[in-house]
């Protein structure tokens, strides 16, 4: 092994280590659920939104694929979990795994369509696919319940811990466990050579190609993976609220995830979770203050963020962090 390769591999190993701050972050999340059981519903919502934003970050932040219809996979996961539960597969974990895989398959099937063309085309194809799936769910009411939605009957996790309205703390813990496992996997993936090659593609497709990195397969792989993550988030929403309706395919859901990611920072795995927490806290605060008009302030925030230059703000915040934290955050 040449010196350069050894240096790179040592750098990757060093970056793969979990820092103290990260460990504290996750322990803090567990503690939060136990300290504030009355807020378990809100925490659960944040965890799931965080997983959804993380999924969007995998394609947007790491691979540079822009999407306006990421809710497509969220919706497939949610309806997948609900339909499985209505056909006798009542174990939440089995339902979650199958529903996420179905979403992943949809992602795999739609990836070649999405990856063609320019960013503009991509925006509209993703949006179109999401709308098509939403319309399918709306019209095939024999399976999805149409506009009435579906409710889920689930057995307790491991036949011990009921989730849902009677077990909101369990539900939050369940979502946290899923989020943590998928986060750890994503962390591993983005720090692997595969993850590095994706970032190379994002920065300069032509130059990455010249280095012998072939784009299409890698992008399809990450797109399908992100679809699995989004499907898991959707399945979690369906299972913990015990109801799904057509709003899982809403344009708003895709837009909100994008917004969370922008608030928290793209290309940074914790960005989605932090952004989700901030977004939902802001939304919660605003919607108690002005129930009908909170969207205005969210819109204003978005416009202000873009005009002020979100890249520059991100760089300035990163500049405040100590060097080591910056290395592990990248």
């Amino acid at each position: 092994m040449s010196g350069e390769a050894a240096r790179i591999s040592a750098h990757l190993t060093r970056r793969a280590r979990w820092g103290a701050g990260e460990i504290a972050f996750w322990i803090g999340l567990v503690a939060l659920i136990f300290v504030a059981p009355s807020r378990a519903l809100l925490i659960n919502e944040i965890l799931i939104a965080g997983l959804f934003a993380l999924s969007l970050d995998l394609i947007l932040g790491y691979a540079g694929i822009i999407s306006l219809g990421h809710a497509a996979f969220f919706g497939v996961g949610a309806y997948g979990a609900a339909i499985l539960a209505s056909h006798g597969i009542n174990d939440p974990i089995v339902g979650l795994v199958i529903a996420s895989l179905i979403a992943g398959l949809v992602g795999l099937a739609s990836a070649p369509l999405v990856l063609r063309g320019s960013d503009l085309t991509r925006l509209m194809v993703t949006l179109g696919i999401c709308l098509m799936l939403g319309e399918l769910a709306n019209k095939n009411s024999w399976a999805t319940g149409g506009a009435d939605g579906l409710s889920l009957e689930l057995t307790p996790i491991f036949h011990l811990f009921p989730i849902g309205f009677t077990g909101q703390r369990n539900a939050a813990l369940y979502s946290l466990a899923v989020l943590f496992l998928l986060f750890a996997l994503a962390r591993r993936i983005v720090q692997s050579p595969f993850g590095l090659s994706l970032r190379g593609l994002r920065e300069n497709r032509l130059r990455a190609g010249a280095l012998g990195i072939s784009a299409p397969r890698r992008l399809i792989a990450i797109y399908a993976l992100a679809a699995v993550y989004a499907g898991a988030a959707g399945a979690l929403v369906a299972q913990t609220t015990q109801i799904v309706s057509l709003d899982v395919f809403d344009f708003h859901r895709s837009a909100d995830a994008l917004l969370m990611l922008i608030i928290g920072g793209t290309g940074f795995l914790y960005g989605g979770i932090i952004g989700a927490a901030l977004f939902i806290a802001i939304k919660d605060g605003l919607s108690t203050a002005t129930p009908e008009y909170w969207e205005f302030w969210i819109g204003l925030l978005l416009v202000a963020l873009v005009l002020a230059g979100r890249e520059r703000i991100g760089a300035r915040i990163a500049g405040l962090l100590p060097r080591r934290a910056r290395g592990s955050a990248a």
Binding site: A255, I262, L302, V303, V306
Partner: peptide, 18 residues
């Protein structure tokens, strides 16, 4: 970038509706 344009105009829509 198209992403910034999308975010900006979605922001405007979010403001216009309320």
């Amino acid at each position: 970038s198209p992403l910034d344009q999308v975010l900006f105009t979605i922001g405007l829509v979010f403001m216009a509706m309320p």
